[in-house]
Amino acid sequence: MQRKSTFKIFVLFTIVLVNTGFLFGQNWVVPAEKKAKASPFLFTEVTSKQGEAVYTKNCQSCHGNPGKDNALKSLTPQPPDPAADKMQKNTDGEIFYKISEGKAIMPSFKNILSETDRWDIISYIRSFNKSYTQAAINTNASTSSPVKIRVKFDSITKKLIFSAKKATKKDSVPVVDAETEIFVMRYFGNMQLDSSQQTNDSGIVAFSIPEKLPGDSTGFLKIIVKMNDDATGEKSDTFKLKIGVPTIVPGLTANRAMWNVVSKSPVWLLATYFSILLGVWVFLIYVITRLVKLKKLGKETK
């Protein structure tokens, strides 16, 4: 009896261990509804070509050239080769989710690449799989009616009020339950403000904005709004709002410096260089004039 329970515990322990390993190392669970997500357009040679450009810029440094098995081996977990089975056995929706969300060392690209870019990448990845056939495309999104987004800053509550409406034949109706995010444009990318939220029944979300965000010289900020609704697809818009602190940032190459271009090199350096150069060459030119005189003297005596 005693032995049997020890054995049971051992088996249980092994199962747990193997599963945890599987969970952390291998398995990347994608929510069922995201798994089934399909591309809004048909994968063609053109989309695959566009995807290749995006892939080369954003993915290749870790995942390597598809099919060449030259992904970065020093990373843990190791990034899979896109042409390998490990990647190809995912559904399009799974790959889309993984690119968008990221996990551990795989970065999230949803704020970096547009949905179209992400689908283009998948189109490119699939071009390495001969047995792949594309599932039915998400026609909903492509035939959706135009959505109008509005953004307004409420100076009392210090909140950014976002509203989205979809135009129908007669009227316009609010876009309900759409995932919405806002970003502010910074030097090297877009910074997300607040967390992503769902539009309410009136199609409205209120985002809180941090105080004292540095703006341009007159206090303007570029706010990027992204809304994603399964019915209407992704919609993104940019607004310029005067809600930042006016900031004058001197350009990195505005002043004279050693690292700047020649026309903006330090005065002391220019003065030193050219005065030495001139000083030496004045003497050399003097010597040459003496040689000319020497020749004249030779002619005169003749």
Binding site: V280, F283, V287, L291, K293, L294, L297, G298, K302
Partner: peptide, 27 residues
Amino acid sequence: LGWTGSDEQISLIKKCTRVLAILIIPV
């Protein structure tokens, strides 16, 4: 250069050599 060996020419050569000999040290 039509060298004749006159005193003037000699002094010119000496002067030039001296200028260059000094100039070449810092260079």
